[in-house]
Design a protein around this nucleic acid. Structure first.
Lengths: 107, 107
DNA sequence: ATTTTGCGCAACCAAAAAGTTGCATATATA
DNA sequence: TATATATGCAACTTTTTGGTTGCGCAAAAT
């Protein structure tokens, strides 16, 4: 089973769950109330998020609170780094171009 | 068909293609040479990337060069922003904690 | 003019994903 | 103790995905 962070955030429901529990730990039932799908479907999403270590569980009596492992999100940030470098370079190139034009106009 | 950037980067082959053409525009055949899949499979991936506007095509005779629309990648960056805020807050909280401990040790 | 090459598109297939219902289990509560 | 609640797990269904092969068309090369 191919389970990575990128696959985890591919599903819009999962992205919504992530954003939801980022603010505070929640139980599957509480999460399910925010969506039009059954609790079991939410549970499945949570299992996928667990499998790629994006969430962790905290048992509290018969309730299980799910919290976001925000550190794992940095993995996406890290992958994005290479592109951030490119768009920053392009921006500075544009910046150079603009200042060159400016100089030429002064002459 | 639900086509967004997050779904586009879910597939590892697609992520590799994105990284590949980020550096320079390439034709489907040239891209396919980097992988163990057929040109048609690459073509399909390129179509998905096109549909969510992550790549654009440039016809040159019978060849079609695919280039990355790097601006679109910022959409992921933007989504990540909300979490970046959280982990930066946590970091500064840890920072506060550490400096508090430091102060207490001095007393 | 004929052949080769580069490409997209359609049909098909197997595997995976996303959802459902039903059930078992453990913890609260009456 | 009996009942209600919170959850996970298994079986099943439908849709989506990632791949294939086979085609047709247009541009290059021969």
């Amino acid at each position: 089973m191919r389970r990575d962070v990128f696959q985890a955030i591919a599903d819009p429901t999962r992205r919504a769950i992530i954003a939801l529990i980022a603010l505070q730990a929640m139980t599957p039932n509480a999460i399910a109330e925010h969506f039009d799908i059954t609790r079991q479907a939410v549970s499945k999403h949570l299992r996928i998020l667990s499998e790629c270590e994006l969430v962790k569980q905290e048992q509290q009596g018969r309730e299980i609170y799910y919290t976001l492992e925000i550190e794992k999100m940095k993995q996406i940030d890290k992958w994005l780094e290479q592109f951030r470098k490119i768009w920053e370079t392009r921006f500075s190139q544009l910046d150079n171009l603009l200042s060159t034009i400016k100089k030429q106009r002064k002459q």
